[in-house]
Simulated scan of single mutants.
Amino acid sequence: MNLAFKIATRFLAKSKGQTALISLGIGIGIAVLIFIGSLIEGLQIDLLDSTIGNASHITISNREKSESVESYGDIEEVLKEESRITEVSPNISSGAFISFSDEFIQVLFRGFDFERAEGIYAFEDSLTEGSKMPSGDEVLLGLAIAEENGIEIGDTVKVTAPEAESTELKVSGFIDLKVAALNESWVVGDIEKAKEIFGFKEDEVSSIEMQVEEPFSADAIALELESEIARDDLRYRDWKASNEQLLSGLSGQSTSSLMIQVFVIISVVLGISSVLAITVMQKSRQIGILKAMGIKDSTASLVFLMQGFILGIFGGILGIVFGIGLLFVFTKFALNADGTPVVPIYIDPLFIAVSGLVAVVSATIASVIPAIKSKNLSPIEVIRNG
């Protein structure tokens, strides 16, 4: 092993230009691998975050849309036992009208326990004006509702619910939920006030929303909850069922990224294998002499395996440096108008380490055919043919 390693390093050192060229080729291949993988992963994380980052992953509601979820406290006791659920927020949701300056605006009134809902909706981060969450007779308005109707903080609006008297509420702030449809329709208030306005009993809510630790397991968790809670009146909906097109797009991205990475690896392997095969021919006389001096066939083949291994290490290191550098350059030059990166890059240390390992493994595999050729060289024929 030591002898094969020494001979391999000597061969590589003697052909410095060739060694540098192969290492550079491996490095570029691994850099592309890291760049494409990190770019796609960053894009997927950004898409998921913008789609479901501040939304419910699983929603429990009544199978009848017009009916409420009764005895929701019993359901929450079951949810507390599920460690994969990170946030739980009961809420009241109902269509209503708000009136201001003789204008009637159709809205969706949503009542929350803000301390519990914050983990899902991040209302405090969404506040554009106002300094606190509403309580009692206060509400937050979607930003578009306020702008289109000239409503300001401190104004009073009347909320009219079906089959209920109008209720006057004070506007305490505006929220920008980053979705036009929500900004144009949401009026957000305290859950207890919402129960009072819409005539809900103390143990009733419209739905129970939750987020889970691993969003892609939401459908499986929803099925388990349905079995554990065992109530025929409830409906369980996960975000995946509502975002089939998004999932299809993410799957397509992952497949295309994998195909690119596979073809990059194949090209790297073929390039190394062809160069090392030529090296066998170039070094055939030296190998023949070494065999004539008593070196075993296995040691001769191990020389080229060692060469592949060493080249893989050098190429992997270069690839990691080039890849991270390429990602850094991309985030500095591919920018939106506000100065943020077009695609936020997600750097996964494990993925980068695996990419470096791929360089070593692929280079070693690429040296197998040259190693077999060197093993089969006959020292007598090589020396005779000079």
Rank of each mutant, 00 (worst) to 15 (best):
Y121I: 00
I191H: 08
I191K: 03
I221K: 08
R10C: 03
G17M: 01
S217Y: 15
M281R: 14
E168N: 11
G386K: 09
L225P: 02
S362G: 02
T364C: 06
F109W: 07
E224N: 14
N183V: 01
S172L: 05
E152D: 11
E64A: 12
P370I: 06
F333V: 12
F104K: 14
V212R: 05
H57K: 02
L33Q: 04
G294S: 09
A366Q: 06
S206T: 08
R231K: 09
V157Y: 13
R116Y: 10
A55M: 10
V329I: 15
R63F: 00
V32Q: 09
S66H: 13
L43S: 11
V269N: 02
L326E: 06
K170I: 14
L276A: 03
F198H: 05
L3G: 02
S298R: 12
S298Y: 13
G312A: 01
V321C: 11
I191T: 01
D203L: 09
I22T: 08
S135M: 10
I45C: 05
G315Q: 06
G339Y: 06
I383A: 03
A222T: 03
I34M: 04
D137W: 09
G294H: 05
I151L: 00
E115T: 12
I320V: 14
F109N: 10
D348F: 12
Q106V: 14
